[in-house]
Amino acid sequence: MKRNELRLGNYVIAVDNVFAEVLRIDTSKITMLNYPFTDIIPFSQPADVLKPIPITKEWLVTEFGFNDNGDGYYQHPDYNFFLYHIEEDEYFECYKQVPANDDTGDFKPLQHVHKLQNLFYELFDEELEGKF
């Protein structure tokens, strides 16, 4: 991964396939904690050894609290912010409806949890955090 695509609080896959939350971003390393927080000792690794976490139903519903509206649609409980799972291409189409009753919106394909977190922050000025 590239250091410039990460923000504090992003979830990534560290070496040994460990889920981790970004705590600090330096020029030569990323400092993280294991996620869920089973070990509270921070560790550091270079950004180029980190991998993105693919968005899955489990991440959306279990970790981030999205509602599963069926047929591949997921909605954030507090915002008109939706994801639609495009199974054949293995990504989620993300959109925000403005106003709430309008069928139009801005669409953006997403595949990775950290990109979803970054977009959510950009749109709502609020962190998209896991439940742990």
Rank of each mutant, 00 (worst) to 15 (best):
M32I: 06
N34H: 15
L83F: 02
L33P: 05
N101K: 12
E87K: 14
D125I: 05
N34I: 12
R24T: 15
N17I: 04
C94I: 00
I25Y: 07
T56V: 08
D102C: 10
R24S: 15
K96A: 00
A20D: 06
Y121W: 13
Y11C: 06
M32G: 05
K29Q: 14
N34T: 14
I55W: 02
D106P: 00
I86E: 08
E129V: 13
H112F: 13
K2I: 09
N17Y: 10
E93Y: 00
M32N: 07
D16Q: 12
D106E: 12
F92M: 03
F43L: 06
Q45E: 15
Y79F: 13
F43W: 05
F82L: 07
P109A: 05
T31Y: 04
N67T: 11
P109H: 02
V113A: 06
Q111Y: 03
I30K: 07
R24A: 15
Q97P: 00
T27Y: 11
Q97C: 06
A14N: 04
I86F: 06
P36T: 06
G130E: 03
M32P: 04
D78Q: 12
P42M: 10
E129S: 13
F120M: 02
T31F: 03
F43N: 06
E88P: 01
N17E: 15
R24L: 15
R24M: 12
G105I: 00
E122G: 07
F132E: 11
Y79P: 01
L123V: 02
P54V: 11
D48M: 12
Y74T: 04
D89G: 09
D71I: 06
P54D: 13
E93M: 00
N34F: 10
F64V: 06
D68K: 08
H85V: 02
N10D: 13
R3A: 09
A20P: 02
E127H: 12
E21N: 09
H114T: 04
L123M: 07
E93L: 00
D103A: 09
E58S: 15
E127V: 08
D39G: 09
F19Y: 13
Y121I: 03
F92S: 01
D48A: 11
Y73I: 07
G72H: 02
P42T: 12
R3Y: 05
Y95R: 03
F132C: 12
D125N: 15
N4Y: 08
D125L: 08
Y84T: 01
V15E: 15
H85Y: 09
E122S: 14
W59R: 11
V18R: 13
H112E: 08
T62I: 12
Y74C: 04
L123R: 03
L6V: 07
P36G: 09
T104H: 10
A47C: 08
T56Y: 08
M1P: 05
N4H: 13
V61Q: 08
